[in-house]
């Protein structure tokens, strides 16, 4: 019986690269991985957005209108709905001039967790405490 902690670090911007979407969907898969594991074995992901990756966290994305694809916003809302721990780097938000009010939440869908804007030092701690770090 053990828990394996994974840090998903998203550093690429959305839409220019597939990485943010793949990071989110892979992290969400923690919900179903138990079917492939033994009793008591769990995987706990933390999804962290840094650098250009923080752009994925801005609300009111129009991906479906403009490209006919599910937005990164929708994927992130799904992540919040399954109680995924999602962190976004406060310093990088400030660098882009993005206020915390512009960050996606899924409250209207009933999510109980929110994306947390945290100093990079906290993301660093998350990476240090993870069993494996996955850079997207």
């Amino acid at each position: 019986m053990a828990d394996v902690k994974l840090a998903f670090i998203v550093q690429r911007p959305p839409y220019k690269s597939e990485n943010p979407k793949l990071a989110i969907t892979h992290a969400i898969a923690y919900q179903v991985v138990e079917i492939l594991l033994e009793e008591g074995e769990t995987v706990t992901p933390t999804l962290c957005f840094v650098g250009d990756g923080v752009l994925a966290c801005i609300k009111d994305q129009k991906a479906m209108d403009n490209y006919g694809i599910t937005s990164t916003e929708t994927h992130l809302k799904n992540a919040l709905l399954v109680d995924l721990n999602v962190l976004v780097c406060k310093e990088d938000l400030e660098r882009f001039g993005i206020s915390e009010e512009r960050i996606i939440d899924a409250e209207e869908m009933g999510a109980e967790v929110k994306i947390q804007a945290v100093p990079f030092a906290e993301i660093q701690k998350t990476m240090e405490s993870a069993n494996h770090v996955l850079f997207f």
């Binding site: 690269s17 990485n19 892979h26 969400i28 991985v33 492939l36 770090v133």
Partner: peptide
């Protein structure tokens, strides 16, 4: 398969090399 295959293999791994996309 789907993403959970990767997570399950990570679970049982001593080392993981994750080569991200461009």
């Amino acid at each position: 398969n789907a993403m959970q295959w990767y997570l399950a293999k990570i679970y049982g791994s001593d080392r993981v090399l994750h080569i991200g996309g461009e």
